[in-house]
Design a protein around this nucleic acid. Structure first.
Length: 467
DNA sequence: TCTGGGGTCCTAGGACCC
DNA sequence: TCTGGGGTCCTAGGACCC
């Protein structure tokens, strides 16, 4: 009757580098060794990202405000963080993990799952424990002494719980079949997904431990915490966790946000900030070679209320101009709806709906000169005001753009020959460029956003088109 | 002078289509 | 004429994680 909790061997490994950011600082600066070190925001509104174990003695914890950390441990070294150094150390560790198994799923710079059930490996618990211990030694050797805590179990959930049981520098193996007795006495908060809100709901239902949680039916749990969450909780309470280790998970969004030392009240200043952040987002999109259709802004008010506004475009964006333009419009819309004069402490810009988009066939049939060979004929037609792109096989829709859109103005970007702008009339306007090369140029015709004109599609898994 | 920055996933409601 | 359900896409907010 009981569902088998997982695979029959303890072949899921979870590795967690101990106090990672602080440990890298202590490794690189001998004067910090043995001393409390706190890495995180150092300003008035900063929070702690990582506290060294010496600082934890004083009660300094991750996510605590730096102000409180300073009160508890004034003699600690407070550091901003050197993410390039962390990335490098992380890369070394992930590389070692991938030598042990191709199935490595990084969760962050300092954490990863590894599936050891690949190839010809001996899956006896003792043999797997030897692999894990050898791994820990290699990590320390290769990184100049960074220590890792490792858990080995029959599922992701239990492996992660295990890695936390003997920190720092520990190895905990949970033999298959013993998972439930390990979990039962633990607080429900060991379960991933049970944060403060869920824990409080469960507490009101009389649930404090995993054993208590086992007493609730699926229906009861779904009623308490929702459909998806309830079912997962029901399973995890029984150590049922079939989630596979997945290497190569693609990013779904990219964002840049910042909290300011003092609250902003000037819309123009906020607009400028969003413009700069949009450039940062575009740069990172370019780094990963992706673009996305949904632009989001995030605005946190002085009272910590957080507002998001988003707009989904007819085609993906990946360059600063359009992202900034949409972001600024969303801000102005928001300012009309919500009083921002009380102060804004955080602003952010993001792009979601990411994919390596390819140009659709619909538009690849459009007569388009090669970027490097503009012809005189085209230069002449470009002189004709109001001239419409003549290469389209179907009639070009009548321009229905709001009258304030003047051809030739207001366009700072196109995507591979075509673009769009956000109209003051609250509509997306598809714009065609008369210029032969891609890039900014005068607009000769405007067509209102028309579903039939969607020029981009997600690459289907079967086409294998590259960009 | 409480409360970062980067994300993921879920829910709920409305629009729209069949 | 009345009543409708399912599916998808989009938006806003919230919980959660490291």
């Amino acid at each position: 009757m009981p569902v088998p909790p997982g695979r029959p061997h303890a072949s899921v490994l979870h590795l967690d580098l101990d106090a990672f950011f602080a440990a890298v600082e202590q490794r690189d600066k001998p004067s910090l060794r043995g001393r409390p070190v706190v890495v995180g925001g150092v300003g008035n509104r900063g929070v702690v990202a990582t506290a060294s174990y010496e600082a934890r003695v004083f009660g300094v914890r991750s996510a605590m405000s730096t102000r409180e950390a300073r009160a508890r441990c004034p003699h600690a070294a407070y550091l901003r963080g050197r993410f390039d150094a962390y990335r490098e150390a992380s890369g070394i560790v992930m590389g070692i993990l991938r030598e042990v198994s191709p199935l490595v799923e990084p969760l962050s710079l300092d954490e990863a799952f590894v599936d050891l059930a690949v190839g010809e490996r001996d899956l006896a618990t003792d043999a797997l424990a030897e692999v894990a211990e050898a791994l820990r030694v290699r990590v320390a050797d290769a990184t100049g002494g960074l220590t890792a805590s490792v858990g080995l179990a029959s599922s992701k959930f239990v492996a992660k719980v295990a890695s936390d049981l003997d920190k720092p520098d520990g190895l905990v193996v949970v033999p298959p079949g013993t998972e439930r007795e390990l979990l039962r006495p633990m607080a429900v908060t060991v379960i991933p997904g049970v944060g403060p809100a869920t824990a409080e709901r469960l507490r009101r239902a009389g649930v404090r431990t995993v054993a208590d949680l086992e007493g609730l039916s699926v229906d009861e749990l779904v009623r308490q915490v929702g459909r998806a969450h309830g079912r997962t909780l029901f399973d995890l309470a029984r150590a049922v966790d079939p989630r596979p280790v997945v290497a190569e998970r693609e990013a779904k969004s990219v964002s840049v946000e910042s909290t300011y030392e003092t609250d902003h009240t000037d819309l123009d200043v906020m607009s400028d900030i969003l413009t700069r952040q949009a450039s940062g987002v575009a740069r990172r999109l370019a780094d990963v070679g992706l673009s996305g259709r949904t632009v989001t802004i995030k605005v946190r008010l002085a009272d910590f209320t957080t507002l998001n506004r988003s707009a989904t475009l007819p085609a993906p964006v990946d360059t600063p101009g359009p992202i900034a333009r949409v972001a600024r419009t969303l801000l102005l819309d928001l300012a009309r709806e919500v009083d921002l004069r009380g102060g804004v402490r955080l602003l952010g810009v993001g792009v979601a709906g990411l994919a390596d988009w390819v140009q659709d066939d619909l538009f690849s049939t459009v007569d388009e000169p090669a970027p490097d060979e503009p012809t005189t004929a085209e230069a002449e037609t470009a002189e004709t005001p109001g001239d419409v792109d003549t290469g389209t096989p179907s009639p070009v829709p009548e321009p229905t753009a709001p009258p304030e859109w003047v051809p030739g103005a207001d366009v700072e970007h196109d995507v591979h020959g075509r673009g769009w702008v956000w109209g003051a009339g609250r509509g997306l306007v598809t714009v065609r460029f008369e210029t032969a090369t891609s890039g900014p140029g005068p607009v000769r015709s405007l067509a209102a956003d028309d579903p039939a004109l969607r020029p981009w599609r997600r690459p289907s898994s079967t086409t294998g088109v590259d960009g």
